[in-house]
Amino acid sequence: MANLDIVKPENLVYTKTKVLTDNVMHYCPGCGHGTAHRIIAEVIDEMGIQDKTIGVSPVGCSVLAYNYFDVDFQEAAHGRAPAVATAIKRLNPDCFVFTYQGDGDLAAIGTAETLHAANRGENITMVFINNGIYGMTGGQMAPTTLVGMKSATTPYGRRVDLNGYPLRITELLATLPGTYYVTRQSVHTPGNVRKAKAAIRKAFENQKLNKGLSFVEICSSCNSGWKMTPVQANKWMEENMFPNYPLGDIKVDGKLCENITAERLVLDHPLTVVNK
């Protein structure tokens, strides 16, 4: 079916960026990590900052992110990426510094580092992949696991009385004066990928302004942890994750967005009970 007349260098409109290495990613088929990596790499490429970017990878599925980005990279201890990135940026203020962390890393073991880096207004970009589960260790409950959601450590579903509430750390961070840009995106459809990429671009551009921390949550699926096909997992995410983790900007240029009411931030706490 190939129309080989079209396949010519001058007609190329899209191919993998050179800021990604040729290493084959270890992620499961359909995992959002690959897409998130790619759009970050594209932003680095488009901004022409490959020689000035330093990334920090977490512990979790994306621990090996440094094998895929062709930029200088550090691998941090579990949860400590914001502290690591703080020092990189303070000592190398001309560099673009980003962390790439999952929900367990950023919102459980590393909550203190996340909160304080945000509160100090560190001039860094944090990319937060929220898939509601510990993927690498085999599908245990994460701070962001939904109420009622089954995991390896909540085999009968997450219970509020036992496990507490899903932590909406992104909303929490938006209330801190140190954050300059806070947004929640996803990468499961072409439109969402474009929006997420624009958000990451903004989060990197913000580092030139030196006005505080830019935080991009990417609500993502973990099809193997959720025990679904990739396409099913994306649909399940739309139906169950998005009501609890609504997409869109929360804080832009240091100001809460108009649609972000106190109710949206605090009172409308996610209590949707999912049954999976």
Binding site: N11, Y14, M25, G32, R38, V187, R194
Partner: peptide, 20 residues
């Protein structure tokens, strides 16, 4: 039609798109 939607969502970046 060369819209690149497939490439946008490909987690492994294995799709190149050509368009005229």
């Amino acid at each position: 039609i060369g819209c690149a939607s497939c490439a946008m969502v490909c987690p492994d970046g294995v799709i190149s798109v050509y368009k005229v």
